[in-house]
Lab assay of single mutants.
Amino acid sequence: MDALKSAGRALIRSPSLAKQSWGGGGRHRKLPENWTDTRETLLEGMLFSLKYLGMTLVEQPKGEELSAAAIKRIVATAKASGKKLQKVTLKVSPRGIILTDNLTNQLIENVSIYRISYCTADKMHDKVFAYIAQSQHNQSLECHAFLCTKRKMAQAVTLTVAQAFKVAFEFWQVSKEEKEKRDKASQEGGDVLGARQDCTPPLKSLVATGNLLDLEETAKAPLSTVSANTTNMDEVPRPQALSGSSVVWELDDGLDEAFSRLAQSRTNPQVLDTGLTAQDMHYAQCLSPVDWDKPDSSGTEQDDLFSF
């Protein structure tokens, strides 16, 4: 819950932080000083300027060897085509990944977070970031790969997607708890209302004896509580940590079903599988986004697919 609360507080303090972009060759504004600060901008989305290598189908939802083989196929196909790589912007948030063309600003792909089953910074092609997700059109699994400016960037994108998945799962947990509370309150309110109706004398007997209905007592009954809980029953509950912020979080049926399955089948359902080692994760978390744009010590960066 700490990640969720800190993310909400950060967004309320400075929503404009989320509009910064990394990996864009110096076009961005001043960047936060450390990885923790940038992680807090996830709610509205972190932007990464990358190059799209392509996509291939895979048979399993996750796995280092599986993704490595898929990336190898994608890279080989991209090299064989001889075409310049498409420059894209990857927007990562707890909602998922939005992929747009840098030149036309046209939407290429919009992947809900619950469809993503794996992401990684490839070991062999260490400047490549990739994720595996279920197609929104059918049940097939797709591996999408992107060329980053350097290994640090690939690791940073991988960690960002993993963190977005974690925050999304926490949102789901909060929403589920809130819905259970509202359902319980609604049920209790309905029981109270039913009890009051059972003990209320029939209207005919009131008229016969000349008694008047006590409207004041009726007004004191917990009807307002019942209506408050039943009027918006169809509205999706939102985490309290975000009250007053500009973010509107809505959970669709697909996300609810997917996270429910994860909660039942996995020990740590909030953790998205990645190909990063503990050492890689520690190294990337210690980086400032400013470091992502620094040239690798191995030599001059080449803006070309064939540089790796």
Results as ranks from 00 to 15, higher is better:
E178Y: 05
D101Y: 14
L215Q: 00
E59A: 15
S260C: 01
D252G: 12
L272V: 07
R266W: 02
L17A: 15
C143H: 08
P222V: 14
S117I: 14
C199Q: 14
D253H: 13
A195Q: 01
R29T: 11
R95C: 09
E170M: 11
L276R: 11
E301G: 12
S21R: 06
S246F: 00
V192L: 02
L50R: 06
T89Q: 11
M233S: 07
P239H: 01
R13M: 13
L43P: 05
R196K: 08
A258T: 00
I116D: 07
R9K: 02
R13E: 06
L272H: 06
V58T: 15
E217H: 02
A221F: 07
G194Y: 00
D293E: 15
K51A: 00
R13S: 04
F259A: 02
D191K: 02
C286F: 11
G210S: 11
Q187S: 07
P269Q: 01
R13T: 13
A185K: 11
R151K: 04
S243W: 14
K123L: 11
L50W: 01
Q302K: 09
S67P: 13
N105H: 05
D198A: 05
T225I: 06
Q20D: 12
V271P: 03
K123R: 10
L242F: 12
S260N: 10
D291G: 01
A221D: 03
W292G: 01
C199T: 06
G194C: 13
V174F: 02
K184T: 07
R196E: 07
R182S: 15
S135H: 09
H125I: 11
T225C: 03
R39A: 05
Q163M: 03
S67C: 01
S67W: 15
A185W: 10
G210D: 01
E65F: 11
T104R: 08
G299P: 07
L223P: 07
L262H: 05
S224W: 00
L42N: 02
D122W: 09
L242A: 14
D291Y: 00
V88G: 14
E177I: 01
A18R: 10
L272M: 05
I12W: 07
G26T: 10
T120C: 09
D2V: 07
W22N: 04
F48G: 13
S224R: 00
M124N: 08
L103W: 02
T158G: 11
G190F: 08
L11F: 08
T158E: 01
E170V: 04
E250K: 09
G190Y: 02
S67A: 03
Q240I: 11
L287V: 02
A69D: 13
K294V: 07
V207I: 15
R261N: 08
P295G: 10
L57I: 13
A78C: 07
K166E: 14
L66V: 02
P15H: 04
S14E: 10
L272R: 01
R238G: 07
Q270D: 05
E33Y: 03
L159N: 08
A145K: 05
A284W: 01
G194I: 05
S21K: 06
E257F: 06
D37M: 12
Q106K: 13
I74H: 12
L103I: 11
L213P: 09
V167A: 03
K150E: 11
D2W: 05
S307G: 10
L223Q: 06
A185L: 10
W249R: 13
K83D: 07
C148D: 11
S245W: 01
T36N: 08
P15Q: 07
R73Y: 15
L147V: 08
Q60M: 14
C143Q: 14
A130P: 04
Q163V: 01
I108Y: 09
T120S: 12
Q173R: 09
K123G: 15
A278M: 07
E250P: 02
S175L: 00
D214I: 12
L103T: 09
K220R: 12
F259W: 09
W249F: 01
F169N: 01
N211G: 09
V88M: 13
Q155A: 12
L85F: 11
Q302L: 15
E177W: 02
L103D: 00
S227H: 06
S14A: 03
N110H: 01
G54S: 13
S81K: 12
H144P: 13
L85P: 11
S175W: 02
G190D: 03
V167I: 04
K72W: 14
C143V: 13
G189P: 00
P202A: 10
L242V: 07
K51P: 04
A284T: 13
L103E: 07
H137W: 11
N34Q: 15
G63Q: 10
S135A: 10
M55D: 10
R266T: 02
L159S: 10
L103Q: 07
H144Q: 14
D214F: 02
L213G: 11
A68D: 13
L99H: 10
P269R: 01
D293K: 09
Q136K: 11
Q240K: 11
K176L: 03
C199P: 04
L47E: 14
R39M: 04
L43C: 10
S260M: 00
V247L: 15
L262A: 06
L251N: 05
D122T: 11
P94A: 06
L85G: 13
L85R: 11
P237H: 08
V111P: 13
S117C: 04
R261G: 13
L305Y: 03
L159Q: 04
R73I: 09
N105W: 14
A185E: 06
N229V: 10
K19H: 15
S227F: 06
K123D: 08
P289V: 07
S81I: 08
A219N: 08
D253T: 13
A69E: 14
A164F: 11
C143P: 15
T149F: 08
Y131I: 08
A263M: 00
T89M: 06
G82S: 10
K79P: 05
Q264H: 08
S246N: 12
D234S: 09
Q86K: 13
E257A: 00
D198R: 04
D303W: 07
G26Y: 09
K84N: 10
A162V: 14
K91S: 06
G23N: 03
K152G: 15
L11N: 15
A195N: 02
D256H: 02
K91E: 12
G54F: 05
S288W: 08
K176V: 04
R196N: 06
D234T: 09
K123N: 11
S288K: 12
L4M: 01
E44D: 12
L4R: 01
V236F: 07
T218A: 14
L66W: 09
H282E: 00
F48C: 12
V290G: 02
E216K: 09
M281D: 08
A145E: 15
V88D: 12
K83S: 12
K123C: 11
E40W: 04
V58H: 12
D303I: 05
E170T: 06
K150L: 02
Q155L: 14
S175T: 14
P15K: 03
Y114H: 06
Q302F: 06
E170R: 09
D252V: 12
L287N: 00
E40P: 14
L53C: 07
E188V: 03
T36M: 11
A154K: 07
T104P: 00
W35C: 14
Q302W: 07
V167D: 04
K19S: 14
N268H: 01
C199K: 13
T200A: 07
C199M: 08
L4G: 02
L141D: 15
S16K: 09
V161C: 07
N138P: 14
N34G: 15
A76I: 06
Q106W: 01
T225L: 08
Q60H: 15
T267F: 02
F48R: 10
K87W: 13
I71R: 07
E257L: 02
Q240T: 06
L4N: 00
H144A: 13
E217S: 05
M55W: 04
Q240C: 02
Q285I: 01
D252P: 03
S112Q: 06
T77W: 11
M153V: 04
S245Q: 08
V92P: 13
Y118W: 14
K179L: 12
L57H: 05
S227T: 09
W172P: 01
E65W: 15
E250Y: 04
M55K: 02
L213Q: 11
V207A: 15
K87G: 10
E178P: 05
G190P: 02
L99T: 01
K204D: 03
L43E: 14
Q285H: 04
T149A: 03
G254H: 04
P289N: 04
Q136R: 12
V226N: 15
S135L: 14
V161R: 01
A241S: 03
W249V: 03
L42K: 13
E177M: 10
P15S: 03
A154F: 01
D291K: 05
D252L: 04
L107A: 04
T38H: 02
S112H: 02
Y283C: 11
V207E: 13
A78T: 15
P237A: 03
S6N: 10
Y114D: 02
